[in-house]
Design a protein around this nucleic acid. Sequence first.
DNA 1: CATTCTATTGAGATCGAGTCTCATTATCAA
DNA 2: TTGATAATGAGACTCGATCTCAATAGAATG
Lengths: 170, 170
Amino acid sequence: MNPKAEVILFPKHARQPRQFRQWLASILQTFQEHLGRQGLKLTRQREEILRALMAAERHLGIDELYLSLKRQDPSIGRATIFRTIKLLQECGLVAEVGSSNGRSKFELKADRPHHDHMICVECGRITEFQSPMMERFQDGAIRRHGFVALWHRHEIFGRCRDCLKRRPRG
Amino acid sequence: MNPKAEVILFPKHARQPRQFRQWLASILQTFQEHLGRQGLKLTRQREEILRALMAAERHLGIDELYLSLKRQDPSIGRATIFRTIKLLQECGLVAEVGSSNGRSKFELKADRPHHDHMICVECGRITEFQSPMMERFQDGAIRRHGFVALWHRHEIFGRCRDCLKRRPRG
DNA sequence: CATTCTATTGAGATCGAGTCTCATTATCAA
DNA sequence: TTGATAATGAGACTCGATCTCAATAGAATG
Ligand SMILES: [Mn+2]
Ligand SMILES: [Mn+2]
Ligand SMILES: [Zn+2]
Ligand SMILES: [Zn+2]
């Protein structure tokens, strides 16, 4: 089970330092506004975690984030990662992507189009996809039931193209 | 947070003893075939758990199932519930419905049409819905990506009609 | 800049759903 | 009935996630 993830929608411009700094500033401001609204503070650790998520080009698990951040800040604690991820989810800046095993992964949601995920149960690859028509009919169902949606989770589990090519029958 | 669940698709005929016995026999046969195929055995406990799921008119958590079964069989163990639920999922007879907190619920899938779920984050109510068009576009996306789907999880979290009526703004 | 009031942090304890171990018991085919 | 093998239940265990708490850091104020 190779934890590599295919990503088709992560912003390419984030690789260029100048644009990245600009992007970071704008996202940080959004975060800080949400924090301020609740009397919370922007700390070095919270900024580091947000920056790591923005620089990532794939979906990250808590432990990947922790180990990666620990290299440049050996004192950082796992509890802070959990706490900050939860804050970022409440802000709408980050979303959770469940995997078939119990370990969730996370992705930056800000400035990225809405999409859902196909998760390969064999190699763990996460394929992002968009289907505007699907979303439209989903919205119709929600309206028919008098429901007000806050978020949704639409994950398809199966075998990816490459795993099928490698071993046509599972 | 009231754990009551609105159910719109659970089979009504299951309430009539004669039809229920007939239905049980057919489902038990399916289960036994799957067990036999893997050299496993049909036990009293496995039958009790299956019967409880068939008689249920809502989505059940492990603990609800455990406490309910314990009344007529005080010796039954939690581990057996977990093991049997997993077997029934492998057989395709039972499906998991995730909730917003960490406790999954389960439902019988056999002889019921495919549907997805809206989950109220305020009262916990689970509303079942169907959208054939949504499924059709989902299948299109799956095919476009050369993926082979084994199962999917499509859950919409938000506020239900009744909670909205009670307190229009969250 | 120093002060002061809070919020935040990291280490480690704790929680809890789910899994595993193992001695005992049940299933089922012969 | 017997025997090979699978299943069970109690409780230990796993491990991701949360909580506790004493020490620290943010930021508002003057
Ligand atoms: Mn994604
Ligand atoms: Mn259902
Ligand atoms: Zn794969
Ligand atoms: Zn509700």
